[in-house]
C-alpha cells in the first residue's frame, strides 16, 4: 500500500533558496548533487517546489528583501520538515555580519535543525549535514504519527496556519530587538 512514511525516509526532496549568499555554497550544493559526491544515491532530489519538499537548504546571511520570501517558502512546506543552514554566513552572518542590509543569520527568522559551517562549505560537509537532517526528519515524522487516543490530540497550534504565525512572530520579535539595538546605538 501507499506508505508515505517509507518514501519520505528513502527519498527526501530538497528545496534550495539563496538568501543573499555569494554563490560559493550554491555551486557546492550543485557539486554535491553531481557525479563525484552524488547525494542522489540517498534518494535526494532537488526540486523547485516548496509544496513537495522535505528538506530546506538555505544559503546566505538573509538580506532585508529576501526575509519575507524565506518565511513564505518555509511556511509553504508541509510538516514534517527540516531546515539546514549551509555556510558560515547563514549560521551567524559571517563576514557580512553588521552590514546595513543584512539580518545576521537565518535563525532570527525560522527554526534551524542543522548548522553546516565553512566558507564555502565543502560538499563533504553538506552531505554530512543532509544525512544528519534525515535522522531528524524521521524523528519528527514519528512524533507526528503518535496515536491520538493515547497521547492526546494533536494541538491546533501545530497546524500549518499556526506555524506561519509562529514564524511571523519570530520575525516580529527580531524586528523589535533590532529596533531596540538601533535605539541604544543612537543613545
Amino acid at each position: 500500500m501507499f506508505d508515505l512514511k517509507k518514501y519520505r525516509k528513502k527519498s527526501p526532496w530538497i528545496l534550495h533558496y539563496n538568501a543573499g549568499s555569494c554563490n560559493g555554497c550554491d555551486i557546492e550544493i550543485l557539486a554535491s548533487l553531481a557525479p563525484k559526491y552524488d547525494l542522489e544515491r540517498f534518494g535526494v532530489l532537488n526540486t523547485g517546489n516548496p509544496k513537495q519538499s522535505d528538506v530546506f537548504l538555505v544559503t546566505g546571511p538573509v538580506t532585508f528583501r529576501s526575509r519575507e520570501r524565506l518565511v513564505e517558502l518555509y511556511t509553504q512546506m508541509p510538516s514534517p520538515k527540516v531546515v539546514i543552514a549551509v555556510g558560515s554566513c547563514t549560521c551567524s552572518g559571517g563576514v557580512f555580519r553588521d552590514m546595513y542590509n543584512v539580518e545576521d543569520g537565518i535563525d532570527n527568522y525560522i527554526p534551524v535543525d542543522v548548522y553546516v559551517p565553512g566558507c564555502a562549505s565543502s560538499p563533504e560537509l553538506i552531505i554530512d549535514g543532509v544525512v544528519k537532517a534525515l535522522e531528524i526528519l524521521e524523528q519528527k515524522s514519528k512524533e507526528i504519527e503518535l496515536p491520538k487516543k493515547l497521547f492526546g490530540t494533536i494541538k491546533e497550534e501545530e497546524g500549518v496556519l499556526n506555524l506561519r504565525e509562529m514564524a511571523l512572530s519570530v520575525a516580529q520579535k527580531s524586528e523589535q530587538i533590532n529596533a531596540q539595538k538601533s535605539e541604544q546605538n543612537e543613545n
Binding site: P61, F96, M99, N101
Partner: peptide
C-alpha cells in the same frame, strides 16, 4: 535584481 544586496561597498 536587488534581492541579494548586502552593502559590501559601504562596509
Amino acid at each position: 535584481v536587488g534581492f541579494v544586496h548586502r552593502g559590501i561597498e559601504r562596509a
